[in-house]
Amino acid sequence: MLESHMDPQLLHRAATAYYLDDLRQAEVAERLGVSRPTVSKLLTEARRIGMVRFEVLDVGGPDVSDLERRLRGLLGIDEVRIAPGDQTQREYRGIGDLLGEVLRGLELTRGDVLLISSGKTTHAVSRMPGMPELRGVIIAPTVGGQQESDPAFQTNETVRNLATRTGAVPRFIFAPALPSPSLWRSLQADPSFVEITDLWTRAEVLVTGIGSPYGRRESLTSVVPREDAGLRGAVGDLCLHFFDAEGKEVLYPGSDRLVRPSVELLRSIPTSIALAAGGEKAPSIRAGAKAGLFTTLITDVPTAQEVLSLVDD
């Protein structure tokens, strides 16, 4: 959904004349009956909202199709999509574009449920243009996070962003990621919380990030203990479920009352789309696949090569 304060039809006519018909800005101005400075503003706005996109291809890059095939076979999952270049340096733009393509191909309809997790990558792509229209689709968070100061871990805001971009219906969790024992007991009978847990069981799609190894994490939700010895062997996490190199779940104090779907429930979701970029996440991706926590991976070329190099090593 392209949002702008300017007339979308005028934006489209200006962009088409300039980028497709190869007219100069003065000629576009004459065609549209506006000033040349107005044309410049129209073209800038068309790029800003994603009506016009540019892609700079890497020179002599690897065969992305071959990388996708090899990585799909290694991980034993249904689909792998790989964006060009290093997406950590591109604000995850390519990963957002591929997510839009995958979601569009799923053809979700009114009443279907899409879950989304917290994290830097999911928060970034939730604000990007180019997502498909999802009118009537329900978007819900997978974890609590009302108390978080880092926007990437405020999952309700990620839900709101994606719903705004797609026209979907947002639903929110009004609870911290790790409630106190008394609040946890109260939540079990709270109608708004029960509505969310019911949506978890109905979900058709999950969009989630993959956390990097515990010892290398620069950002982490405040509810996870930084110095817990049991977590030192965790190579990654998905929806606050930490796992070791073999995909076995790693528990820690308070994990029994975290606001999140169970591992079994996550595995039952028909399409689970994991987003991950950064070489440090290579072991996290492999372990998450061993745990059976995602069916589709969207990553970038350097990360895909690093995952494959783990096998070569």
Rank of each mutant, 00 (worst) to 15 (best):
R260Q: 10
E280G: 05
G60Y: 01
S255N: 10
A277I: 09
Y214I: 06
G209C: 03
I273S: 08
R70I: 10
S268A: 15
H123I: 01
F193H: 14
I298S: 03
P8D: 00
A304T: 05
P8F: 03
P176N: 08
G130F: 09
L238K: 01
Q146V: 14
L199S: 13
E133C: 07
I298R: 12
R171A: 14
E55F: 01
G136N: 10
V80R: 05
G167V: 11
S186D: 15
V102S: 04
Q9P: 02
S65E: 14
S40L: 04
L265F: 03
S182W: 00
G96K: 02
R72E: 09
G236V: 04
V34Q: 03
T38G: 05
R267T: 02
A83L: 06
A29Q: 04
G76Q: 04
G85W: 08
R90D: 15
S65P: 00
T303K: 05
V125S: 05
L23R: 13
G278N: 07
S118M: 07
E264L: 00
D21C: 00
L220F: 09
R90C: 03
D63E: 11
L275Y: 08
L23M: 15
H241L: 15
R69Q: 13
K248A: 13
S268W: 06
D58Q: 12
S182T: 13
G105N: 08
E79D: 14
A229Y: 00
G60H: 10
V125W: 02
D63I: 01
A17C: 10
L266R: 00
V301F: 04
L231G: 07
L199Y: 14
I49S: 04
R185P: 00
S118W: 02
R257E: 03
D86V: 03
D63Y: 10
S309F: 01
R24S: 13
V113R: 05
S268D: 08
L71W: 11
P132L: 00
A140M: 05
R232D: 04
G254C: 04
D58R: 05
G119Y: 07
A163N: 07
V169T: 14
M51H: 06
H241M: 10
S186F: 01
V80A: 08
L310E: 14
P129N: 09
V259M: 10
V102K: 14
R267Y: 12
Q146I: 15
L251M: 06
E30V: 06
T208R: 03
T271C: 11
T16V: 13
V224H: 12
E218T: 06
